[in-house]
Design a protein around this nucleic acid. Sequence first.
DNA 1: GCCGTTTTCGGCCCGACTGTTTTCAGTCG
Length: 585
Amino acid sequence: MRNAEIADAFAELADLYELDGAIVHRVLAYRNAATAIRSSGRSVAELAQAGRAEELPGVGKTIAEKIVDLLDTGEVPAAKRLKEKFPAGLVEITRLPGFGPKRARKLYDELGIASLDELRRAAETHVLRAVPGFGRKAEENVLAALEAADNGQGGRRALLPEALGIGEEIVAALREVPGSDRVEIAGSARRRAETCKDVDIVASAADPAALVDALSSLRVIAEVGTSGEAGARALTHSGMTVELRIVSPSSFGNLLQHLTGSGRHNELVRTEAVRRGLHVSEYGVSDDAAGTTHACATEEEIYALVGMSYIEPELREGRGELEAARGGTLPQLVRVEELRGDLHCHTVASDGRNTIEQMAAAALARGYEYLAITDHSATHGFGNHVSPDELRRQIERVREVDAQVEGLTLLAGSEVNVLPDGSLDYDDALLAELDWIVASLHTSFRMGERELTARMIHAMEHPLVDLIGHPTGRLIERREPYALAFERIVEAAVRTGTLLEINANPDRRDLNEHNARLAAESGAMLLIDSDAHGVNTLANIRYGVDTARRAWLTREHVANTRSWPELDALRKRSRAQASATTRPC
DNA sequence: GCCGTTTTCGGCCCGACTGTTTTCAGTCG
């Protein structure tokens, strides 16, 4: 059973306990456990079966036992009992905006409402307002929320580039407004999460009204809802909510920290503060003993007050960053400027939009020292495969351009398909002519875990495969990862010296932050690539760096922070040669 | 239900908003 499935089961159990009236802290304990399970890079099923689930933060004896029950029987016994007690539609009602377990439960007890349809009817016929605590407005809100849900609105999460694009445009415009002081993106976009529900912007300004005016006149903004001195809430034409909050410069740091989150991170910071007799809020850090409140212009001041070094936004997820910040062991996160080359991109030879020359020029303009041209291979369908003869000609063209271009090492590579049996779709003699080989899966995803894992490991054992491209095959919000035993893949990567890619395409970001962190901790070497299909998408590399940073990676973990000769020396074909030449006779 | 440089028991972040009620519970981020 996958981590996501186990996490879903415990998140659902939390919902059910909440409906059942359990104390909030117990419910929270289940939610926290679900989050820890979801973000574990290791297989929680394997961990639990080995009796080691309690190693996960927030998982104690009880939940560890329940994980084993779930694995053994396919269901947590407590969840089974509660599902018999509460109809499935009740949980759906708790997810409606404005509804939680208390209000859903009240309608169930008073009116027997157990589904969204029944709720709609009760609102339409004004039966709802007979229940204490519900009135005219509640009925209107129910109907509006149900309509929004029917239209597929509500709950849509944008990929990071969409949210960042909106946020960066707004920030740039607001910084130009006379009297504006500081303007920053906050929220999940600042943490560089894979998806964002809305765009949060924090500002300080001498004239807040001018900022709100400027926001409402921006091209991206369709309408401004509520607005005032403290900020505004607006909607973009694409349907994203933008939240602008304005404070005095003296507490800019407090609001920025508060709105950057994550919720879990803030909760942990505040718990740590309470232990020191302090209370952290969006307005300042108050001191019980002194009876004073310290407003913080910068986030650094807040973290210093609670005894920690500054924590980069990408790490603020409640995954051990507080302990590291207390102990002074936070990683020096890899930066996009540290990448010296890109080793996965496409040209018109397969499905790219630009020529080798154009890609080389664009790589030079980015300041790269090297670029590998890795078009798709012989069996890549979609009418853009590269036959063995075409690959030979492509290698020649790469060599010619390499000779012409100053300051860039151009590598002749290929993104080779891993066939269902784990073999590659060019013969070894041709592969040996290439400087760089990415092996990826593009077909036959629906194999069982055992077969698919063996298939990928077989490819990794090929002496010429340098890198596994987009190793889990997931597409964010669209396609689940392949059924891989990821820890086996990491073991094989370490054993064979095969690099694992963080594919920076923002639809992929594959490896994800959890897998990348596990791989690095296990001693595997990672590499960040754009997988660009044109000159414009080389810049996508930033999203791969975002994932790497969220995975706690330093430049040491990322192979392409090295020069090409250094990287060349550490890959497995060089190591094999080295061990062959130093072997005693 | 989890957890411990206060604790193996007794805590567990903080504040705004909403709709309802008349002082606040529930929801949200």
